[in-house]
């Protein structure tokens, strides 16, 4: 699994998983780390659905290795990055 050294796991949950049509994928990085903001920009450039759902101002959260983070957080190879809507449990 040499790929794990240069890639991250992306996880989409709930409504976003349904909208994107994917629950989990492996994404290759161009460098050893990338900011959450840059990662989101890269995802937005994929297609109109990603662009719309992940547009700035839309309500969604990003968790890296199970902790919610902000746009300046650095994502590193091997990290699990989850993107999901505001939670509605309880």
């Amino acid at each position: 699994m040499a790929e794990a050294h240069t890639s991250i796991q992306l996880v989409f949950l709930a409504r976003l998983r349904e909208r994107f049509g994917v629950a989990r994928e492996t994404l290759s990085l161009d460098s050893s780390e990338i900011s959450v903001a840059s990662l989101l920009a890269r995802l937005r450039s994929r297609d109109p659905v990603f662009a719309d759902e992940l547009a700035e101002g839309r309500a969604y959260r990003v968790a890296v290795n199970h902790t919610v983070v902000g746009g300046e957080h650095s994502v590193r190879a091997g990290d699990e990055v989850a993107i999901f809507p505001p939670v509605t449990g309880g």
């Binding site: 709930a14 939670v87 509605t88 449990g89």
Partner: peptide
């Protein structure tokens, strides 16, 4: 806190 931070979603 559970209502606003624990990752559960209802459909």
């Amino acid at each position: 806190y559970l209502k606003t931070q624990a990752p559960f979603w209802k459909r």
